[in-house]
Design a protein around this nucleic acid. Structure first.
Lengths: 349, 349
DNA sequence: CGCGCATCTGACAACGTTGTCCAGGCTCTA
DNA sequence: TAGAGCCTGGACAACGTTGTCAGATGCGCG
């Protein structure tokens, strides 16, 4: 007759420390399994004396509830996933921190991963998170087709996209006003007398990059300035490439007198290039950064509020979870032009 | 007679979309449950024809394996937890990114949370992660007593502490050479002729802060310079407080001629204060930061390699997991003095 | 034609928890 | 003191998956 009352001790050591379970606690406390569950979950209907006995057993055995089993039973994991582009990017730090704070306020944990701007990796990550049955997903898209998430969303995974819109599906999206911000930044340069203005941005397949480029073009058009092809660099944003692009724009017979940088990584490199030159070149960058005010001259930027992006997205996520489904919305947060000197330099013609 | 063959459809909607299970897939494909499991896990022993039928059913139903159940069965979650101080701190970005990369290479996901320098919150987070049965834990300690993790470690949760040592338990620790770095930085100032050198650091209950303070004292002592109490500020590092501390050191009859900052946040504020002054004051900061070279003068720093800290810690973690238990070790990574100008200013006496 | 063997498949239990439901003991009142 | 009702505690099934094991099927060979 096989003994089924206790798990076989002959199991190979695939499970590490053989943690105590509620059953063990119950045995030690001399109570039923469900009573332990009640104590652990603070449910009513346990006499103080029984509770004390159970607590002692828990203490003695070092018991900790297995949330995997709990999740399996309850159907909610109290955790949300965050797929972003790069945890190490200073722009995403405050964003994920904000998401985390909101999650914490709702008693949820945050699982996150970096897509490294690779659509496949984004998908792999997002689906892995779904397999863990996260309650919701905040995604900073790397790809432009998110139909792979349709079954998940239908199955009840709350989903919000941030920073860039979802591709080919209808979902909540929280964005900065990339178009307006870039337009304002470039208009600012134009207002200070510039006409030959360079734009260095990321690949236009990235939505934010495309929008900012559109803002640049709009500002130029509004001012009646035809844009020359050599004034624009739209490609990878590794330092070497950006450096080369900046140097090309700044040389030749009719160099640009001002540069607008499409994101924080570009900004850093362009500032390096400009610092090596003697002729002053006006500069405005998208994204604020620490110590921008202490450089000489201070760096004028179009700032977006990364924390607000994260917070807004996470709040929408939990609204989906708490209040049932709401119609997908597109929220656009304003940007702010911060003048510090570099954007107010006159053209050195 | 109750029908137990299928879960009751009368369940209240506590479970959202009622996702399909392997059972559903099996029913649709007209095969057994275990066969579906075999297909999903790529186990051998399934005819191509059967496999195709199963795949089609999976596709049609939008099935995705429930990892919670899998974890419950297998005992390993393929996820590790990271408890850090603040996701938004630029120092921890690269660190967590490095941990994530290593985790990814081992097929594991990363769950992380910020303790906000609060020991209780650290404990709460770490234990929540253990309840999720993470396979391992990377902790940047906020508190100085980690005995609460003893049962978990005994139960097989691999654990590595980074940036600061564990308190009151024996565990793997990966640190920067805070003492040596600070000593070198201060010695550098002394070598450039300074004797009245200020130190602004965090609360000494934080290990790194205490070690850096020790390095400062050691350098001063080595040079035979008695340290005055007014030269040291050891407290919270909010901007107001740091600003006040810096301004006090720089005024009075015998002001300091150089300042050593204990971490990146202090550095930022001190640089602000120094930028407002006309008299040049030499400066060295602990922790490198972006654009430090572009300030006037460039900022000399003692740099630690955050990514290396994270990578080393995560690698040790997985070594624990793969190779069974190894004796706990304390690894100390060297720091690097990067001279850029601010630390080489002569004393303005 | 029958037997053995290899291959493929499925029934069943178990993982650790929670929800349901019932039993037993107690108190309170008539 | 008996009956009703309440309070506490426990037995049992279920969550969705995987490991074990045995049954079914088909094939080759004697």
């Amino acid at each position: 007759m096989p003994d089924t009352t206790r798990r076989a001790d002959s199991l190979p050591g695939n499970r590490y420390g053989n943690r105590p379970t509620m059953k063990d606690v119950a045995a030690r406390a001399g109570v039923g399994l469900k009573t332990v569950s009640r104590v652990v979950n603070g449910e009513p209907g346990v006499t103080p004396d029984t509770e004390r006995r159970v607590q002692e057993a828990i203490e003695a055995l070092g018991f900790r509830r297995n949330d995997s089993a709990r999740v399996l039973r309850k159907g909610r994991t109290a955790s949300i996933g965050l797929v972003l582009e790069d945890l190490a990017d200073p722009f995403y730090g405050p964003l994920s921190r904000a998401v985390e704070e909101v999650a914490r306020a709702h008693g949820a944990l945050l699982i996150n991963g970096s897509s490294a701007e690779d659509p496949e990796r984004e998908q792999e990550l997002a689906l892995a998170l779904c397999a863990r049955r996260v309650d919701g997903l905040v995604v900073i898209p790397a790809g432009d087709d998110h139909r792979y998430l349709e079954p998940e969303i239908r199955a009840g995974v709350a989903t919000v996209f941030v920073d860039r819109p979802a591709g080919r599906i209808d979902a909540d999206v929280v964005l900065s006003d990339n178009y307006g911000g870039a337009r304002d930044g470039v208009a600012h340069l134009i207002a200070h007398g510039h006409r030959r203005i360079g734009f260095i941005g990321d690949m236009p397949r990235i939505h934010t990059a495309a929008e900012r480029l559109r803002g640049y073009r709009a500002a130029m058009e509004d001012a009646g300035i035809p844009v020359e092809d050599e004034w624009m660099s739209l490609g990878a944003t590794n330092p070497e490439r950006v450096r080369r692009a900046a140097e090309e724009m700044l040389s030749g017979p009719a160099p640009v007198t001002a540069i607008f940088a499409g994101n924080n990584r570009v900004t850093v490199t362009v500032i390096r290039v400009l610092a090596e030159r003697t002729r002053p070149v006006a500069f405005v960058g998208f994204d604020d950064f620490e110590l921008a005010d202490l450089l000489q001259p201070g760096v004028t930027v179009v700032a977006q509020d990364a924390a607000a992006l994260g917070r807004t997205a996470a709040e929408r996520l939990f609204r989906q979870l708490d209040g049932g489904l709401v119609a997908p919305e597109r929220v656009e947060l304003p940007t702010r032009l911060i003048t510090r000197g570099s954007g107010e330099l006159p053209p050195a013609d």
